[in-house]
Design a protein around this nucleic acid. Structure first.
Length: 299
DNA sequence: GGCCAGGACTCAG
DNA sequence: CTGAGTCATGGC
């Protein structure tokens, strides 16, 4: 086992591991106590995930002013990438718009960072996310890993990697319905087949201009503008992406009605500008979490 | 028991 | 391009 510890004080804007991993951005981590997305912290619990290409297992835990990690490999670069530890969060928060809702969200959830998920797992996760609560999305993604992913041994325990495209493409619609995916089942199978067959890959969107990248991702079955924005924001490094989900739409209605332009593309441009442009996705993620957890319910 | 959850698809106009 | 109808499932 390789281990390490990253001092939190070295990270601009700090880190809150719980907020980062349980704010509805990622469904590819598992909490050791099996209580992710229950709304309760457990400062002692490790979070584990796996690295797609190498099959390495990585565990992290935040304690005593450090982000501790344990892994099958030197996980320092993986941890820094997955939790975007090199983002200058202090500057991003300071430069965010002086809108009361945005400032309140940043102030209430200090240390929450964006994640950078592996693209395929993120894509499938958010296809599953349609009309689902975050806890159930996590359950569904965990089930896919259990049923179709590699078993990885580490430190005497068994971990389940999220399935590679060719593994998930072996699933049938009937099987996935049996696993509780509902009407998303054919979307997941067909998208996995598209990637496994080389027809398209979400990574292809990484180097495109933002709106072209979003358009590219909508070719996958079960992916509309909103899910595409989630993949751009949580996997492909587009910090300006603002997914227009039910919570953000209600925020637009209540706080930024002038940004409602009737369709996704133009409303997206307007709210992206209102949320600060380059790092609008950060502001979106804070506002989303603030509203969803009820902290901003009164206003 | 109706409503809702990080929506997308199909089809008509 | 836009609007209505449809689609599973579990928690409250």
């Amino acid at each position: 086992m390789e281990t390490g510890a990253i001092p939190i004080d070295d990270l601009s804007g700090g880190l809150d591991c719980y907020l980062t991993l349980e704010s509805g951005q990622t469904y590819l981590w598992q909490r050791e106590d099996d209580a992710m997305y229950t709304g309760e912290r457990n400062p002692d619990a490790w979070y584990a995930t796996t690295i797609p290409d190498t099959g390495d297992v990585v565990r992290v835990r935040q304690r005593d002013g450090h982000l501790e990690w344990q892994s099958t490999t030197d996980a320092d670069p993986h941890v820094r990438r997955l939790l975007k530890l090199d983002d200058d969060l202090e500057a991003i928060a300071a430069d965010a718009p002086a809108e009361s809702l945005i400032r309140e969200a940043y102030d209430c959830h200090r240390g929450m960072r964006l994640v950078e998920d592996p693209a395929f797992g993120c894509l499938i996760s958010f296809i599953c996310s349609a009309q689902m609560r975050v806890k159930r999305i996590h359950d569904m993604v965990s089930t896919l890993a259990l049923e179709y992913g590699d078993e990885l041994a580490f430190d005497g325990e068994t971990y389940h990697a999220f399935p590679r495209p060719e593994q998930l493409a072996t699933a049938t619609e009937a099987e996935l319905r049996e696993l509780g995916l509902g009407y998303r089942a054919p979307y997941v199978v067909r998208t996995a087949e598209m990637v496994a067959g080389g027809e398209a890959h979400p990574e292809e969107a990484r180097d495109l201009p933002y709106e072209e990248a979003r358009e590219y991702l909508t070719r996958f079955v079960g992916v509309g503008d909103k899910v595409a924005d989630c993949v751009l924001l949580f996997a492909l490094g587009f910090d300006e992406a603002v997914p227009l989900d039910t919570w953000i739409k209600s925020a637009i209605e209540d706080h930024y009605p002038d940004c409602d332009r009737g369709n996704y593309a133009t409303t997206s441009r307007a709210i992206r500008e209102r949320f600060g442009g380059q790092y609008a996705g950060y502001a979106q993620t804070y506002v989303f979490h603030h509203l969803r957890t009820g902290a901003g319910a009164s206003e």
